[in-house]
Write a protein that binds this DNA or RNA. Sequence first.
DNA 1: GCGATTCTGGACCATTTGGTAAAGCTGGTC
DNA 2: GACCAGCTTTACCAAATGGTCCAGAATCGC
Lengths: 210, 210
Amino acid sequence: MNDATKPEKKPSRIQLRNRKRILDAALEVFSQHGYRGATLDQIADASGLSKPNILYYFDGKEAIHVTLLNTLMENWLDPLAKMSPDGDPLEEILAYIHRKLQMSREFPRESRLFANEILQGAPRMKPHLETGLKTLFDEKTALIQRWMDQGKLAPSDPRHLLFSIWATTQHYADFEEQVSILTDRETDPVGGAEQFLDNMFRKLLTPQQS
Amino acid sequence: MNDATKPEKKPSRIQLRNRKRILDAALEVFSQHGYRGATLDQIADASGLSKPNILYYFDGKEAIHVTLLNTLMENWLDPLAKMSPDGDPLEEILAYIHRKLQMSREFPRESRLFANEILQGAPRMKPHLETGLKTLFDEKTALIQRWMDQGKLAPSDPRHLLFSIWATTQHYADFEEQVSILTDRETDPVGGAEQFLDNMFRKLLTPQQS
DNA sequence: GCGATTCTGGACCATTTGGTAAAGCTGGTC
DNA sequence: GACCAGCTTTACCAAATGGTCCAGAATCGC
């Protein structure tokens, strides 16, 4: 649970509560301004704690960001990890799309935090991407390729398929401002996206029974 | 050509050269770090000019950013504006996708500058979006809707169609770092994307002759 | 209830950052 | 080739920012 260098006894109630407050505030601030654009003062304000107090709980600005990124990574990979070799191929992929879209709706800040990090060259996340994400990506593209080879899905490049799914689903969180303006502040653009994307990927992936 | 408030005589050769240098350097820096993360010193370094000299040519950090955003906007809308009511509907849209993809390949920094701005809530661009982009968007979604009504394209929501095109094409510039890692630093991922997206949107949009 | 421990915030600090003043240099024009 | 507007730089600022110190306040274990 802890890293070997620090034995660290169990965190107290207050510790737990305040760490959570800080991380929530930091998520808000980092996701909106990016790492370098965010300030400890903003995080302090948003969390309701004083700046020195924040530094009592975390080793510094970077430590907060890293913590955020680490916990994010797991939740981020989860929907893809859940895509199972055992289900119906088309339905598995459509269900995955559904989950991703759901995350855009429920956790737009997390999506933007991630987007900010990648946009800026993933300086503090490259290792994560090269191990965790890459492994999962290779595994799932291979699975999809197998499905295609078996004629259960129409053939196309599985890598670009995943890119397209990521791009289209995360778009609604990352470019929310734009989407909101262009859809005349419609209450829930993601609802319409759901139908549209289901239709699009269904047409793309349904195999021809020639 | 100039705004009415400032008559301003014609800019000199040096003026032209240095403004260009500064804007190019600023594009590099802003697109990588976002507005708040970028510093004048970085821009000074990248442009080979001193910081005060930069402030001799522009009124401040914000003025540089705004200038960049303004010139970007035109080039950004251009590919969509070129989509003509007179051509073959399917081919018009596929050509548009091709143009957008080409821009991701040729101008990734511009794409990231734009992405950064929207991600952070479009603080200095909202007016632009609400006028220029919105107008064009409405015009083109209406055009696509007409094509669909005429049975020349399979029906779907034109707004989400455009969102999907933007998302999938810009993804290769904005998330280049991730794409690069996952495709094992393949020389030109956009090449593969070209085929994939052409196929995907063709399947989506080709009308059923039932 | 009380001492030990954990938590909290006001004052402070060094560095960075956007920006300015003003003196010196340059290049085009007569 | 001397002048002068236009360009460039050195030396600064004031504010913002990440971070520290330390004394006092809350909380916990008993």
